[in-house]
Design a protein around this nucleic acid. Sequence first.
DNA 1: CGATGGATGAACT
DNA 2: GTTCATCCATCGT
Length: 199
Amino acid sequence: MMIDPLPDDFFARATVEVARDLLGKFLIRRRAAQLIIGRIVESEAYLGSDDPAAHAVAGRTKRTQALFEEPGKAYIFRLHGHYCLNVVTETVGNPSGVLIRALEPIRGIEFMRQQRGESITDDHLLTNGPGKLCQALDISMAHYGVDLTDATSPLYLAQGEPYAFETVATPRIGITKAQDRLWRFVIKNNPFVTRTRSF
DNA sequence: CGATGGATGAACT
DNA sequence: GTTCATCCATCGT
């Protein structure tokens, strides 16, 4: 049950709602016989229109191609030498998505340590950032456009197990435009969220 | 074809 | 609090 994938219609909704509802869900990386699992504890919504901070403002390019495809697909981009993972939302042609910013390691933590480097001794640092979690789960451009609603994919999203928490909305991190919009969502008091930056 | 600039992370003071 | 290594798609020439 906890590894049943989320259905298509979970993602074919308003992006801000999907971002908030993804908190507590499981991100699952299938590698051979092993499942690497993290609980989503931080997310951000990026809208296809009226959002100056979103990649969608660049229009349909080779980089943003996946954003224009079906909701539930993976949109991955490279930034400063790191990968970042998004889930496509809304409808085909509406280039919206949710950035997965932090995970709480659930299963496969030894694999995550190997991926992140043996110098990482504090488990809180394994997956508390969009680039870190991609490194920890071995997510790369090989997963660009994969179906995150399919349990046979190397990467997908699942309901997870029951988990009670409070949600907090804050401004998004690392952007210079539209900083007034409270489209970052975190699980209150969860130690695996990213540190907030100052500007 | 060179320049630019990030939805970052790590290592500093 | 700060700096800086990082990569490549995109854009200007």
